[in-house]
């Protein structure tokens, strides 16, 4: 049974209130998505079908030719591989570091100060952070003094300087460290709020029952903040899938550090069709996670 006042305003009024939001979403989200999909089926002129860029005697996916590029081109497979690596390392990296900070900050006297410092990188523009870290990783060739702090330290310790950004064995990890540095504060803030929200009675009861700190964390706290942990993780997965700024600013995708979003950006002007196919690929990869996040939220509302 609906309350009478809602019944009285009929079915139209709620739509009226929704209308501004809907119109804005239609113009800025729904239409661009469909336009992107339609452009992804065209070749680089945006007028002919993507089939036009097929070469006789080579594999061709017809109108889906741009998707063949997005999934099989060596540059793209490298980007996909790198994105997978980012997911596997940066997501756990940020969540674990964030959780660690949240737990540790809970124990110190100047908690808010400590947390503010760790959260601070979030306040820097990502491009700015990329430039800062370029200096950190800088390597000076020849006889000059090392001005990058890491290489300066290495040289002080008697080691030879390392080309952090161009050595393909380590450069992806060097970039991921920047990512963790930027995002750990975000994870910390959210997880810290979850920890603060835990009912003290439960924690005290566990202590009275003789649980040590380790058991308290694994058996009591972790299960209770699990929903938050899950949301933070999926949010980070979405962020990492779209990773762009760090790579663009620091290596430009060179030296084997290419990622999906960077390929999309590079192709926007020169081959719109391919760029749009990559964009659609990114949307497709992101949608399940967004849906999952929404589902979790709804579940939590019900629980409450």
């Amino acid at each position: 049974m609906l309350p009478t006042n809602i019944k009285r305003q009929g079915r139209l009024v709620p739509w009226l209130y929704l209308a501004p939001a809907l119109v804005i979403m239609l113009i800025f989200i729904v239409f661009p998505i469909f336009n992107t999909i339609s452009l992804s089926l065209k070749d680089k002129t945006s007028t002919r079908s993507a089939e036009a860029s097929c070469v006789a005697g080579e594999p061709c996916w017809g109108a889906l030719e741009n998707y063949r590029y997005a999934l099989t081109n060596p540059e793209m497979t490298q980007a996909l591989r790198n994105n997978a690596r980012w997911l596997m390392l940066m997501v756990p990296g940020t969540v674990i570091v964030g959780l660690l900070f949240a737990l540790l900050a809970d124990q110190v006297r100047y908690e808010s100060l400590a947390k503010s410092i760790i959260f601070m990188p979030m306040a820097i523009s990502f491009v700015g952070a990329g430039i800062i870290w370029r200096f950190v990783y800088h390597i000076e060739s020849g006889g000059g003094e090392q001005i990058g702090i890491l290489n300066a330290l290495l040289v002080q310790l008697g080691a030879s300087p390392v080309a952090f950004l161009s050595n393909p064995a380590i450069n992806n990890y060097a970039l991921m460290i920047v990512g963790v540095w930027l995002w750990a504060g975000f994870c910390m803030t959210v997880l810290s709020a979850a920890i603060k929200g835990l009912p003290t009675e439960v924690l005290e009861a566990a202590r009275v029952d003789g649980a040590n700190g380790w058991q308290l964390f694994w058996r009591v706290m972790l299960p209770m903040i699990a929903p938050t942990l899950l949301v933070v993780t999926t949010t980070m997965v979405i962020n990492v899938l779209k990773i762009f700024d760090i790579v663009f600013v620091m290596t430009g995708g060179n030296f084997g550090t290419e990622v999906i979003a960077n390929r999309m950006f590079k192709l926007i002007v020169t081959d719109t069709g391919r760029s749009m196919a990559i964009a659609v690929l990114l949307i497709v990869l992101t949608i399940p996670l967004v849906l999952f996040n929404m589902y979790r939220f709804r579940l939590q509302e019900v629980e409450e």
Partner: peptide, 10 residues
């Protein structure tokens, strides 16, 4: 109840 504030932060 406190979950509400957590939710808000999220």
């Amino acid at each position: 109840m406190k979950l509400k504030s957590v939710l808000f932060v999220m």
